[in-house]
């Protein structure tokens, strides 16, 4: 599979301080390879350097060192922008243009002419769910609506690679659902999607691969299934109608017991608790099984653990 995005040792220093500027490393030797057709989730806490990396890929910033290529071409190549789409974080466009005019403007910059412009513009506006508001000037748009306009402009040229910086931010639950479906649609079309987020549930449902960036460094990357070992951490069992049936002897089998409403009770079981035996026992005593779920590690658990260990390592590094 050809690489859609490659970076090697990509670093960016910013000067901080006015009188005696000293370099502050926002991105530290990022080496990354995203294959064509992948949906890559670029994860990390706020300020980790995700936007910096994206701006380097868009050549809005020039790297301090390292290289970046998109579709096999250096990022400075204007021609490559013909084949990509980009949504900035908290995008802002022109107050005095309407959504339609803005997109027509961008469509012309992509080289489309005449009727092609109008059909493309109305198609992408439909795709992101902007209806008759498309004739309003953008200054009257809410943050969520602007976000949709931003998505629309990123899709205008049927891009081969789409870069989305925090695409879900500012959207209501319906909007998020919409964006999720859009990204899935892009994946189905064979488009490479590279998106940054600090919201992990999005990544979990969408990504084939993720990278985790902490304090400018890529601390982990790989397929989700690899990153999360899918280790069984235990069971959650909810039963109804137990009442007095739950003898202390049975309760001993569970790690903890939480009473829920309507006489439901949740039992947390150890991974080796053999739930079958317990289930049989409970049914025999007239209890009604509501649900039984395995508990596995989530991306969030993983994320918290990685961030914490990086911070700890840094603290040690400073101490030594």
């Amino acid at each position: 599979m050809a690489a859609a995005i490659e970076t090697e040792g990509l670093s960016k220093d910013f000067a901080v301080g006015f009188w005696r500027p000293r370099p502050y490393r926002a991105l530290d030797r990022l080496t990354l390879n995203v294959a064509a057709g992948e949906v890559f989730g670029f994860l990390g806490p706020n300020g980790a350097g995700k936007s910096t990396a994206l701006k380097l890929l868009m050549q809005l910033l020039y790297p301090t060192s390292g290289t970046a290529r998109i579709l096999g071409r250096p990022v400075g190549d204007v021609a490559v922008r013909q084949r990509i789409g980009f949504l900035a974080e908290n995008p802002y466009y022109y107050d005095y243009l309407t959504a339609e005019e803005l997109l027509a403007y961008f469509a012309r910059l992509f080289g489309y002419r005449g009727a092609d412009v109008t059909t493309r513009v109305s198609r992408v506006l439909d795709e992101v769910g902007i209806g008759k508001e498309r004739r309003l000037r953008l200054r009257r748009f809410s943050k969520g609506m602007i976000q949709r306009v931003g998505l629309a402009q990123a899709l205008l040229n049927d891009p081969e690679v789409v870069f989305l910086d925090e695409p879900m931010s500012g959207l209501d639950p319906l909007g998020r659902r919409h964006v999720r479906d859009l990204i899935l649609g892009l994946r189905a079309r064979g488009c490479t999607v590279f998106f940054s987020s600090h919201i992990l549930s999005d990544a979990e449902t969408l990504c084939s691969r993720v990278g985790v960036l902490v304090q400018g460094r890529l601390v982990a990357s790989g397929p989700l299934s690899e990153i999360l070992a899918f280790e069984l951490k235990g069971w959650e069992l909810v039963v109804a109608g137990v009442g007095a049936a739950l003898s202390p002897e049975l309760a001993q089998l569970a790690r903890s017991v939480t009473p829920l409403s309507d006489g439901h009770v949740m039992l947390h079981l150890a991974p080796d608790a053999e739930p079958d035996r317990l289930l049989g026992e409970l049914t025999r005593r007239g209890a009604h099984i509501v649900s039984l779920n395995p508990v596995r590690e989530t991306l969030e658990d993983y994320f918290v653990q990685v961030v914490a260990s990086t911070a700890a390592r840094d603290a040690r590094g400073v101490g030594a």
Binding site: Q59, P63, S65, A68
Partner: peptide, 14 residues
């Protein structure tokens, strides 16, 4: 450091 700079494929244009 200078080696890394030289290898940048998209450096700041002169």
């Amino acid at each position: 450091m200078s080696g890394a700079l030289a290898s940048a494929s998209s450096p700041r244009p002169s």
